[in-house]
């Protein structure tokens, strides 16, 4: 029963937490830029506003893609918080992103199109690292199940420092922060207007925003897993990690896709795999 309760709690609470995180993000960013910034609850106002607007679409199927994006994002999060299989969470995560990409493709605007292609580049950039994160968790805790990983008293971070660094990079991409906000960004994007979200408006855009909030919570939940042995440290780690992302956002210019792909793969390939290989070796070598 508990997994189902957890999933329901996630589905109900995650948007609230995610929205607050987004609000804090905007506030802190504004302070870093020497501004007062919007109210803390601004993201909720934004979404509320978007729901008040009329639905403008290029093609009717956009609605379907956005809804699927939201639903599968919630599903993957619910799987995560009900302690499901980490790999399955990742696959559901990818599935939901594919819907976002397809939604962008379906509008036939060149800006959406370029955004969609860039989003795909981002997906191939970060996905290896996410899978390696799951693999790392497995190597440490001998299970892919989030419930087992969280229950383990092993300080995961001690074994997976490299993977954690790689995961932070993924977080930058996923939170759509500079330097990796290729496909769309929170403010006007100087290259491709709004990228993937260009042709969504009103309630559809609001759904994308809510899906982002769901996503934030899952992504930060993964950070928790690294420190699952001690909830207080874990929450501190989440705050520090998020703050770090905001700092990175504010101190980098946007990278090009080549750079993004290379950096992401290099970090996943070098730091992530080396970390895992060391772990393999230390574990008494399933080497040969």
């Amino acid at each position: 029963m508990i997994p189902i309760v957890n999933a329901i709690i996630y589905i109900l609470l995650a948007p609230i937490i995610g929205g607050l995180v987004a609000g804090i993000d905007r506030k802190v960013t504004a302070r870093m830029q020497g501004r007062v910034g919007p109210p803390l609850l601004q993201p909720f106002y934004d979404v509320g506003k978007l729901f008040e607007k009329e639905t403008v679409v290029v093609t009717i199927s956009q609605n379907f893609h956005v809804l699927s994006y939201l639903v599968f994002m919630a599903v993957s999060g619910a799987l995560f918080f009900s302690g499901g299989d980490f790999l399955l969470v990742i696959f559901a995560f990818t599935l939901s992103h594919i819907f976002l990409v397809l939604g962008a493709y379906s509008s036939y605007s060149p800006y959406s199109h370029v955004g969609a292609e860039r989003e795909l580049i981002q997906i191939i950039a970060y996905e290896p690292m996410i899978i390696l994160t799951a693999v790392g968790m497995y190597l440490v805790t001998q299970s892919f199940n989030i419930s087992d990983i969280i229950a383990s008293s092993v300080p995961v971070i001690m074994y997976l420092p490299g993977v954690f660094v790689g995961y932070l990079m993924v977080l930058t991409i996923k939170l759509r922060k500079s330097p990796f906000d290729l496909s769309t960004s929170h403010h006007a994007h100087q290259e491709i207007v709004k990228g993937v979200t260009t042709d969504f408006s009103g309630p559809n855009l609001a759904k994308i925003e809510i899906a982002h909030w769901y996503e934030y919570v899952v992504l930060l939940g993964v950070v928790y897993l690294f420190f699952g042995f001690n909830p207080i440290i874990a929450i501190a780690a989440i705050i520090i990690a998020y703050f770090l992302e905001i700092v990175i956002d504010n101190t980098f210019s946007r990278a090009k896709w080549q750079m993004t792909l290379k950096t992401a793969w290099l970090i996943a390939g070098a730091i992530g795999i080396v970390n895992l290989a060391t772990l393999y070796y230390l574990r008494g070598g399933v080497w040969l």
Partner: peptide, 9 residues
């Protein structure tokens, strides 16, 4: 170039 902080500065 996507460096909003400098813009503000």
């Amino acid at each position: 170039i996507g460096f909003e902080n400098l813009f503000m500065g």
